[in-house]
Design a protein around this nucleic acid. Sequence first.
DNA 1: CTCCTTTATTTGCAATATGCAAATATTTAT
DNA 2: ATAAATATTTGCATATTGCAAATAAAGGAG
Lengths: 148, 148
Amino acid sequence: MENVRELFHTMTKRLGLLDRNCCTVGGMELSLVQSHILYEIDRMNEPSMQQVADAIAMDITTFSRQIQTLMKMNLVKKTPYPQDRRVYILSLTPEGKYVTAKIDAEVNEYLAEVFSHMSEFERETVLRSIRLLNECMAKSTVCCKPLF
Amino acid sequence: MENVRELFHTMTKRLGLLDRNCCTVGGMELSLVQSHILYEIDRMNEPSMQQVADAIAMDITTFSRQIQTLMKMNLVKKTPYPQDRRVYILSLTPEGKYVTAKIDAEVNEYLAEVFSHMSEFERETVLRSIRLLNECMAKSTVCCKPLF
DNA sequence: CTCCTTTATTTGCAATATGCAAATATTTAT
DNA sequence: ATAAATATTTGCATATTGCAAATAAAGGAG
């Protein structure tokens, strides 16, 4: 299996840097954590606090405070959920949507640049490989917990 | 390019969880950051503080304090460098080597389990893909800075 | 040799993030 | 009606972060 861990370590390190570089939108500076929260809220369907915290594998109390910050920044909205009044539904404000879309565009642009160094065939292979890897990690019983 | 970012996001999230699960050795609990510092020191050849901090893309002042902590935990040793007395060379103590090897073994075991859900051919393809991806990220001019 | 600039590392400090325990509010089960 | 479970927030103590400044040593210009 040679240096498998090193391969993965290098990859995640670089992808992490890429992510970090995409946390500035206009004048606004987001932390990596905040960027991930916005990403998950955008992706999930009317999620509750708990659901998003679970998805990010973040302690709910820390998460609660991050949401307070994001609300002060006018990026996130909390709506009481009528069917269960303990629950709040999270959503992005228009500004939050704008910021999230901007980050998404920038990440994709960076990724496109990375892929521009490959042939069409290589690109397809790499993407298929990552898809397969994700499936196998989902199947894995031993690692990558907590699952989402 | 479909959902390329989502693919990468899922992968890094899961690999991050895998990494986090590997931070407990015996009774000792390491943070993810500390685990990465040990990993880099182990890998680099007689590195200075600054070199490791750069490799991890971490602010040198934060790094300096993390090293202080790791020294208190008796995992890391700082040796003055005779040729340039501003510099300290970092190395792992025997205990640090043990912990680092233990983490490495656990990560590799987890990765092996993930790859056990693939055929030999798929595994080779995935590893080759990641190698290629790393090369392309290294070539990239626009992202993944600061480089290492 | 002396002065100035650069580099490596550490400390002061203030802001932020973290997570456990406990509080609160609400729902579900008995 | 009461008890147990769930969702969210707050108290608190600790840890992490990064900028600015301090310290120490090296290298270069004259």
